[in-house]
Simulated scan of single mutants.
Amino acid sequence: MNLPAPDTPLYNHPLPLIEAWLREHGCVQHREQLHCWQLKTPQWQAWISLDIEELTVLYEAPGHQVKRAFKYSLSREDVESAVFAGP
């Protein structure tokens, strides 16, 4: 997988590379809703949605939920740091 430089905005990444990037981080694509991905960790799980204007993440941890949105204009490095750090 040849991803662009980490400081490249997500909107400059082809969809197949974004999908490969999510898989590399342990995300599993939903069988029917192909724009949705799930990530499970021992402490929390997240539903990642590749929406039209932004990437949205719904975190679920014992006792609470947190929803966050990240514009595709953010760099992959910034999105990666935020999304995979958890709620």
Rank of each mutant, 00 (worst) to 15 (best):
D7C: 01
D7P: 01
D7A: 08
T8I: 03
T8C: 09
L10F: 05
Y11N: 15
Y11W: 14
N12L: 14
N12W: 06
N12K: 13
H13P: 02
P14Q: 00
P14Y: 00
L15I: 06
L15D: 09
L15E: 11
L15F: 04
P16G: 14
L17C: 00
L17G: 00
E19V: 02
E19F: 09
A20R: 04
A20L: 01
A20E: 10
W21L: 08
L22M: 15
R23F: 06
R23K: 14
E24D: 10
H25A: 15
H25T: 09
G26V: 04
G26S: 09
C27E: 05
C27S: 04
V28A: 11
Q29P: 02
Q29R: 15
Q29E: 07
Q29V: 01
H30L: 02
H30I: 01
H30T: 05
R31E: 05
R31C: 05
R31A: 15
E32M: 08
E32W: 07
E32Q: 12
Q33D: 13
Q33I: 07
Q33K: 15
L34Q: 14
L34V: 06
L34S: 11
H35R: 14
C36Y: 10
C36P: 04
Q38P: 01
L39G: 04
L39E: 07
L39N: 07
K40R: 15
T41A: 15
T41I: 14
P42H: 10
Q43G: 04
Q43A: 12
W44Y: 15
W44D: 12
W44M: 10
W44A: 09
W44P: 11
Q45M: 13
Q45D: 14
A46I: 05
W47P: 00
I48N: 02
I48G: 02
S49Y: 09
S49D: 10
S49M: 05
L50H: 03
L50G: 00
L50Y: 03
L50E: 06
D51C: 03
D51L: 02
I52D: 11
I52R: 12
E53F: 07
E53L: 09
E54C: 13
E54N: 12
E54L: 11
L55W: 08
T56N: 12
T56W: 03
T56F: 02
